[in-house]
Design a protein around this nucleic acid. Sequence first.
DNA 1: GCGACAG
DNA 2: ATCTTGTCGC
Length: 240
Amino acid sequence: MHNLTIPDYNKITVTEATSLQNNLKGRLLLTTGTANITTIAGADISHNKYEETVYAGIVILSYPGMALISYSLIQSTTKFPYIPGYLGFREVPALLQAWQQIPVKPNVVVLDGQGITHPRRMGIASHFGLLAETAAIGCAKNMLFGEYPALGNEKFSYSPITKYNELLGYALRTKAGVKPVFISPGHKISVEDSLTIMTNCVKKHRIPEPTRLAHDYVNLLRTGKLSAGFHKVDIQESLF
DNA sequence: GCGACAG
DNA sequence: ATCTTGTCGC
């Protein structure tokens, strides 16, 4: 009585997609369940312009050390175009494929996009978290929904993202004088913990390590420098 | 109706 | 997102 069938995203219409988002949002859990986090993943998609082929990847790092442990890469295709507000329908299917070939799942996954800072609270992080049944956080480079007051120019300055007086996430300055990133919980995590966790993932770049490395690795797959599959990283090699 | 609009 | 050269700053 609570299970709904997930349709084929290659055939779904935008109207049906909106309906599914409204159904899925009722299942969101915005409290943190994971007591101790020792591993965190970053997920991202890469593709060549005008092509339906997508290169998906999930990298797993130690937390809070941020050392690369392993990564899962997969090549797939999508018919769903990029439409603001519906990113999950385009990227989640391929990401779930990459997720399935990971033998030991990470404690939390960081997605490149919004979590609940979305018109129907169903940004890609919430969408992925629900379907993969995992804790997930959205870390976006740009805003989609909500407002935030100006934040300080110093590193780690932050300000709340709200909509109709409801706290949805935080704008976080990861480097002094640089545009902030936008954090929001996806699923199975709280707004406050999302900010704390992402703050611990910041190293030397504007983009926190999980999605930054995921982006680098899916591009290595797309350009043929790495092969699809699950790979373990033996020693601390600093490819990036 | 108009403007905005993750990747 | 991808493409693409130079350039400014730490």
